Structures are given as C-alpha cells and as structure tokens.
Simulated scan of single mutants.
Amino acid sequence: MQLKELFDDDNAVSPVIGVILMVAITVILAAVIATFVLGLGEQISSTAPQASFSFDYNDTSDNLTVTHTSGETLDNATVTFKNSNTTNSNVVYGGTGEEISAGDSVKITNVTQSAGDEVKVIWKEPSGDKSATLATWP
C-alpha cells in the first residue's frame, strides 16, 4: 500500500458532508413546524405597542396631563389611565376619536404628588389575554 495514495483519497468526504447537511435541514424544519403547531407563532406576533407618554403635573389644581408624544397609534378601547390613590382609579381617554395618536392628551384630576399618587398608562389586548404598562408617573 502506498502512503501517498492514502493521503490523496477523498472518497469519503462527500457522503459525510451530505449526511451532516441533511440532519441540519431536518432539525431546522422540525423546529419551525413545532413552533407553529404548539401555537408559539401567535404569541410572538402579539406584543404590546410601542408608545411614549409625557406627564405635566399642575400642583395648584392637582391635575396631571398625560400626553401621547410618539410611537404607535393606540385604540381608545385598549388604553386605561390608572390613578393609584383615588376611588375612581380608571380614567378612559376622553378624546373625540377612537384612536390615541401623538399629540393627544388626557387630564387626570385629584392627583396629589405629595401623597405618593402613581398614575399608570395601561394597555390591554382586545381579547383581554395580555396587558402591559406603557408609562408610569412619577
């Protein structure tokens, strides 16, 4: 047997690479199918909207103005402004449209900064399964 002939023989390389590629393709395909069969694909697409809010507190009248400054337009029915320290804790946007877009604002009354009141802008998914806090004051 020639030693030089042993090093130049590449016959077994192609089948090994082919088998490795087939196994990798099978694993990736199985992962993609499992994601959609188990319903994980739906959960990924349902995320909270990205929106920014600013807060302007007036200490003489104990009013807090919450303004949507930028980000996605929100459906009025999915957003609640919650004041932690009042009996009427849920304030719904009182604008003219059914959407809250950049520049729209709502005034929340009976907010006392010295009493430690906390106001949250809460988004709730229309189906009611998920919710997220978009902004918090202070």
Rank of each mutant, 00 (worst) to 15 (best):
Q2L: 12
Q2G: 12
Q2E: 11
L3K: 11
E5C: 06
F7N: 09
D8I: 07
D10W: 07
N11D: 13
N11V: 15
A12F: 00
V13D: 01
S14R: 14
S14V: 15
P15Y: 11
V16Y: 11
V16A: 14
V19C: 01
V19R: 03
I20F: 08
L21M: 10
L21F: 08
L21C: 08
V23M: 01
A24D: 06
I25S: 13
I28Q: 02
A30C: 10
A34R: 07
V37S: 06
G39Y: 02
L40Y: 15
L40M: 08
G41L: 06
E42G: 15
Q43G: 15
S46R: 14
S46L: 11
T47G: 12
T47I: 13
A48Q: 07
P49T: 00
P49V: 00
F55G: 03
D56R: 09
Y57N: 08
Y57T: 05
D59E: 14
T60D: 09
S61M: 02
S61P: 00
S61R: 03
N63S: 10
L64A: 10
V66K: 10
T67Y: 09
T69G: 04
S70D: 14
G71Q: 02
T73F: 04
L74C: 10
D75I: 04
N76S: 15
A77R: 14
T80E: 05
T80D: 09
F81Y: 04
F81G: 01
S84R: 05
S84E: 02
N85Q: 02
T86D: 07
T86S: 06
T87V: 11
T87A: 11
N88E: 13
N88C: 06
N88F: 13
N90T: 02
V91M: 05
V91Q: 09
V92K: 12
V92F: 10
V92P: 02
Y93H: 03
T96P: 11
T96I: 13
G97R: 08
E98L: 09
E99T: 15
E99C: 07
E99M: 13
S101A: 15
A102Q: 05
G103Y: 06
D104L: 01
K107R: 06
K107W: 00
T109S: 05
T109M: 00
N110I: 08
T112A: 10
T112H: 07
T112M: 10
Q113V: 11
S114K: 05
A115E: 03
G116M: 01
V119M: 05
K120L: 07
V121T: 08
V121R: 11
V121D: 06
I122S: 09
W123D: 07
P126K: 12
P126V: 02
P126T: 08
P126C: 04
P126N: 04
S127E: 12
G128R: 07
D129S: 15
D129V: 13
K130A: 13
A132D: 14
L134I: 04
L134S: 03
L134F: 07
L134Y: 08
A135K: 11
T136F: 00
T136A: 01
P138A: 07
